[in-house]
Write a protein that binds this DNA or RNA. Structure first.
Lengths: 193, 193
DNA sequence: CGGTCTCTTGACGGAGTTCAAAGCTAGTGG
DNA sequence: CCACTAGCTTTGAACTCCGTCAAGAGACCG
């Protein structure tokens, strides 16, 4: 149950066997059915979720009722509304499962205790926040400068695993275009080869 | 010289007079002429800059040679490439002055020492990072969902002070549109009222 | 003054949207 | 095992927003 998490942490900070065992005590396991929510708009995001299997997404719904996907997370990734989690403010985002999934949850208080007991993990969470920041900023740069086709090409290059698992219409939402446009872009690309 | 910084910090954490005085010792003052660089692509961003007066901007240049402005900073704001600063990686961004400006610089090592001497400032810098993260994410959401007109309206609402100080072509770059489009949008808006 | 920088305006073109309809696929129940 | 439905993708035609290219109008500065 914690094998994936262990490898994930070890890539970033080195823990002893004993430290890692104490670490796992702070996590709780949860199964999430397709379409089930982990976070709903208006609530405060109180946990970080590490994905063991399946796929989740984070999205906003705008005034026109349109969905904009901000992030996907498959196994070995984290998902949460960091803005809400860190500042304990109500979230404007939703997180739900694209497929049946299993996650390990780390509550805010559990995280605080974890950081006190194993200060090495400070580094881990700093890296996590930085990684998120970098990803959002890269996406912003892309969405300002690149065409829909280029954004799609970048997407399948960076996240090949997602292309298989996520319905096309949701990838379109992530890219900021309509499902119809993405369908046409894919047609174009397949004809070029 | 430090009056603005003092008020700025006090809004977020409470320092004694003596703590604040020790704090200021870590900053260095610098005047920056219009178009002068504070950071150039390929360098590592080694400092956080607090703007005392003037205006600076952070931007990338894409493959086509086009400029995309990521952030402006006028007095009472910070500017730096946080991605590069935090991870000590080479930056893909440039920072230069839109007008003659005065900034207070806080080097990485100075910041580390400051945090050791005055741990209260940990909170301050965490809030700074969070604020940046929130701003980038809000911008991403906007650029995915809103029209150029709506993005411009949001811009002048959030940053009225910038509209006066920054050339229109640079605001267009920030919004991800051409100067011509922004000119037309402004014309439309003035006719509506 | 003349030169440079910035903003405006017009005509045209292209990328992506919208609306509508039809195909496809997988799951469900008779 | 087939028929039916629901969800997802594809396709077409008209339209819209924004970009591109080109030219002109102000404004500022030496």
């Amino acid at each position: 149950m914690f094998a994936l998490l262990k490898k994930h942490i070890e890539k970033r900070v080195h823990l002893t066997e004993e430290e890692f065992d104490r670490c796992t005590g702070f996590f709780s396991h949860k199964a999430i059915k397709k379409r089930q929510f982990l976070l709903q708009e208006g609530d405060v995001c109180r946990q970080l979720a590490f994905v063991n299997s399946g796929c989740l997404r984070e999205y906003t719904v705008d005034q026109k009722g349109e969905v904009h996907i901000l992030q996907f997370a498959i196994e070995d990734w984290w998902i949460s509304d960091l803005t809400s989690f860190l500042s304990e403010s109500t979230s404007m985002h939703n997180i739900d499962a694209v497929h049946d999934s299993e996650v390990l949850l780390l509550e805010r208080t559990a995280r605080d205790n974890l950081l006190e007991i194993i200060p090495k993990m400070e580094r881990f969470f700093r890296l996590l926040l930085e990684g998120n920041y970098i990803a959002v900023q890269r996406r912003l740069t892309y969405s300002l400068s690149a065409s829909a086709e280029d954004r799609y090409l970048a997407f399948i290059k960076i996240y090949p695993a997602l292309v298989e698992q996520v319905p096309q219409a949701q990838i379109a939402s992530y890219l900021g275009i309509t499902p119809q446009s993405l369908s046409r872009i894919r047609k174009e690309l397949s004809q070029k080869r």
